[in-house]
Deep mutational scan, measured.
Amino acid sequence: MSIQHFRVALIPFFAAFCLPVFAHPETLVKVKDAEDQLGARVGYIELDLNSGKILESFRPEERFPMMSTFKVLLCGAVLSRVDAGQEQLGRRIHYSQNDLVEYSPVTEKHLTDGMTVRELCSAAITMSDNTAANLLLTTIGGPKELTAFLHNMGDHVTRLDRWEPELNEAIPNDERDTTMPAAMATTLRKLLTGELLTLASRQQLIDWMEADKVAGPLLRSALPAGWFIADKSGAGERGSRGIIAALGPDGKPSRIVVIYTTGSQATMDERNRQIAEIGASLIKHW
């Protein structure tokens, strides 16, 4: 067993022997301040990774656009098919120029040779490549099948209805392509620590998230040296922004954090800054 596999296998073990965790309302004060600064709703939840206990939450059962955070769930569904012998990570998928959609920095470079399922998941999570996500959605049967996968996990809230990039439209009061912070946090925890996926697939999923290259201005910008984070960000229309993450000190994750916002007129930089400040408060009061 590799060191990384050992780390993920012992996530519940280490967490069980940690000192009790206590909620700190100071972080919620910052979440509410972010709402004021952005002029928009902000949803927040913080779960203990081992027990699933909610440590703090704000608007945990209000719907927010998922945006690209759905790509972690998508690759979880792909990995479940791999575990069941219905898919192979090494299978190569070929596609054409007509398949390319807006923001496809990886797939646009491989029109000639195609990409493997493993490479597509890596591109979808680490670079948020939209064509990679659409190609992977095709392998599982489309958005409705991802929703069905989530329902089978016990998540009857999260739903995907459309493809990239239309799913980022974020129309107010439109339930399409949305989740709730509580539902997303619980589902992410199941994917990373539950028995739904094999140990190898859980490790692969967290490795992809740990290698995320496009979430630097968010929670990662607030992390002290030595902290662990595996995350996936999302951005959408109407001032929408979000991030889902597993993080913790001492090089291992111990909490799940989900943050979503929508309806702001603020710039992307300002949305990023507010999420980073929430992260800084979380870490300060850990």
Rank of each mutant, 00 (worst) to 15 (best):
K32I: 14
D33C: 07
A34T: 12
Q37G: 06
A40E: 05
I45G: 04
E46K: 15
E46A: 14
L47V: 09
L47I: 14
L49F: 11
K53T: 11
I54W: 14
L55Y: 10
L55C: 14
F58N: 14
E61A: 11
E62G: 08
R63M: 10
R63V: 08
M66P: 01
M67G: 12
F70R: 02
K71N: 01
L73R: 03
L73C: 13
L74Q: 04
S80M: 09
G85N: 06
Q86Y: 15
Q86M: 06
Q86H: 14
Q88A: 14
G90H: 15
H94F: 08
Y95P: 04
Y95K: 00
Y95G: 03
Y95A: 04
D99Q: 08
L100Q: 10
V101T: 11
Y103D: 04
S104G: 11
P105S: 09
V106K: 14
H110Y: 15
H110V: 11
L111H: 12
M115K: 04
M115W: 02
R118Q: 14
C121W: 02
C121Y: 02
S128R: 02
D129K: 01
N130G: 05
N130A: 02
T131W: 04
A132D: 02
L136M: 11
T138C: 15
T138M: 15
T139Y: 13
G141M: 13
G142L: 00
K144T: 12
E145S: 09
E145I: 09
L146A: 13
T147D: 07
A148C: 08
A148Y: 12
L150V: 14
H151I: 11
G154H: 08
V157Q: 08
R159S: 11
L160T: 13
P165R: 08
P165H: 13
E169P: 06
E169V: 07
A170Y: 05
A170D: 08
I171K: 14
I171Y: 15
N173L: 09
T179C: 05
A182T: 14
A185K: 01
T186Y: 13
L188Q: 02
K190M: 14
L192G: 01
G194K: 07
E195T: 13
L196A: 09
L196H: 12
T198V: 07
S201L: 12
Q203M: 06
Q204H: 14
D207E: 10
A215L: 03
K232H: 01
S233F: 01
A235M: 10
A235I: 04
S240A: 08
R241F: 03
R241P: 02
G242M: 00
I243F: 10
I243A: 05
G248Y: 01
P249N: 08
G251Q: 07
K252T: 10
T261P: 03
G263F: 08
A266M: 13
T267K: 06
E270R: 07
R271F: 04
Q274Y: 08
I275D: 02
E277D: 05
S281T: 12
K284R: 14
H285S: 11
